[in-house]
Write a protein that binds this DNA or RNA. Structure first.
Length: 403
RNA sequence: GUGAGAUUAGCUCAGCUGGUUAGAGCACUGGUUUGUGGUGCCGGGGGUCGCGGGUUCGAAUCCCGUAUCUCACCCCA
């Protein structure tokens, strides 16, 4: 038997119901915030991700599905959504057009990782990207949007916030941090020694307990923010307070993708195991320029759909449409015609075998039909059809022409 | 990439230290003496026990390999 590749799942039945329910709910809310759908290719030039996500990140370093296509191009399956949207934004010259541009997307992402709960090789994200808005109100809107989506789906969460600083304060802080790391270099883990030169900020979220205790005295970026970053951060907190969104400051929150700056946030759930991040995002004001566009402020987030699926509270399913059956083989052709006609307006299923009434009712119940319509000997003679409302338990007999 | 555990019917699992035709519940399907369901009763189909080797008179059960899943590390959504 040929099986699907490791970490790549089919989505069907109950999962698909949940999946589409999530997409519909999230899309509707994104539209309410003024965002428009965008679809970008699953395959892109490898250079796009190397430059945006960052060479030092694990994603680019060891998790990409990368290959050379028949034309000799170095390409890879997208490991995340932002890079493609930014590429499209620049390619469509929207950076030159000016103004604000707001997009949302959803679809498959690919990372060659060891699968476990909440971590697949092909997984799905829903994300939004906003271009051209510098105001921290936009950052706040992003967070409120995630909160709205999670609330609409009945999902509980904790929100973690941090500021990563900008070009003004980050370089000085980085230097400071490196100096600090050097002072404890003898005792930190191998990974952190490597991080010191590749991406020193990342040592802060090292999971090693010994490292963590050493870093307690490390300089904190949140205390070294420049005036602009500082005021945006306090403004954000004020907005969230005013809108009843609770949060925790996590000074070690470092996003795994290199393009973030200033506000960074992560929504986590305590109910899905160790892969607890259900949404993450932040501001990335330098990325558009870095990908050869005109400098454009931008902010966005992404949600991991598979991780949310099991947390979603589905609305109660309502009985819907018609089930039609015949109690006499003679009536089957007529039932077929009526079913076809009924499908112009309603969901309609039928049974191809003549059965007794009890079995038809059972079958109608099983497919969750609202109405069970049956034609038997009496109805054939009268030119009528018997219809029972399975919800209200009422029944009527009407002319076949009125059905 | 590292470590640990699992893999028996469509699903959830039982099967003791290797021993006659591998079981249960749910699901599916048929009937319930021939016109009233979701909740009665009786029956039926369905498993080369993940795959490949090995040990043995004999393996679902022991050993080795391999695939996948799960958990942890790591990473992230």
């Amino acid at each position: 038997m040929i099986k699907s590749l490791r970490g790549m799942n089919d989505i069907l039945s109950e999962d698909y119901k949940r999946y589409t329910y999530f997409i519909q709910t999230a899309s509707k809310i994104a539209q309410k915030y003024g965002f428009h759908f965008i679809e970008t290719p699953l395959l892109e030039e490898t250079a796009l991700f190397k430059r945006s996500v960052g060479e030092s990140s694990d994603i680019v370093g060891k998790e990409m599905y990368q290959f050379t296509d028949k034309g000799g191009n170095d390409v890879c399956l997208r490991p995340e959504g932002t890079a493609g949207v930014v590429r499209a934004f620049i390619q469509q010259k929207l950076d030159r057009a000016g103004g604000t541009h707001r997009f949302f997307y959803h679809g498959a992402m690919f990372r060659y990782e060891r699968p476990q709960k909440g971590r697949l090789r092909q997984f799905h994200q829903f994300g939004v990207e906003s271009f051209g808005v510098e105001s921290v109100y936009e950052d706040a809107s992003m967070i409120m949007m995630v909160s709205d989506i999670l609330k609409a789906l009945g999902i509980g969460y904790r929100l973690q916030l941090n500021s990563l600083g900008d070009n003004n304060c980050m370089p000085a802080y980085r230097e400071n941090l490196v100096k600090f790391i050097e002072s404890v270099e003898e005792e930190i883990c191998e990974d952190c020694k490597r991080r010191k030169s590749t991406n020193p900020i990342r040592v802060l979220d090292c999971k090693n307990e010994k490292c963590q205790s050493l870093y307690e005295n490390a300089p904190k970026l949140i205390n070294s923010l420049c005036e602009n970053c500082e005021s945006d951060f306090s403004q954000l907190k004020k907005i969230l307070d005013e809108n009843d969104i609770t949060y925790e400051i996590d000074t070690n929150l470092v996003r795994g993708l290199d393009y973030y700056s200033k506000i960074a946030f992560e929504f986590v759930s305590d109910n899905i195991g160790t892969q607890s991040a259900i949404a993450g995002g932040g501001r990335y004001d330098r990325l558009v320029e870095f990908l050869d566009g005109r400098p454009t402020p931008a902010v966005g987030f992404a949600m991991g759909i598979e991780r949310l699926l099991e947390l979603i509270e589905m609305p109660q399913e309502q009985r819907e449409g018609y089930y039609i059956g015949a109690m006499d083989e003679e009536a089957l052709d007529l039932v077929m015609q009526l079913a076809h006609k009924k499908r112009a307006t309603d969901k309609t299923t039928m049974d191809y075998k003549a059965k007794n009434l009890k079995n038809h009712l059972k079958a109608a119940d099983k497919v969750n039909a609202r109405y069970c319509a049956v034609i038997g000997e009496n109805e054939i003679n009268d030119g009528t059809i018997w219809v029972k409302d399975l919800h209200n338990k009422t029944e009527i007999t009407i002319d076949q022409g009125e059905f």
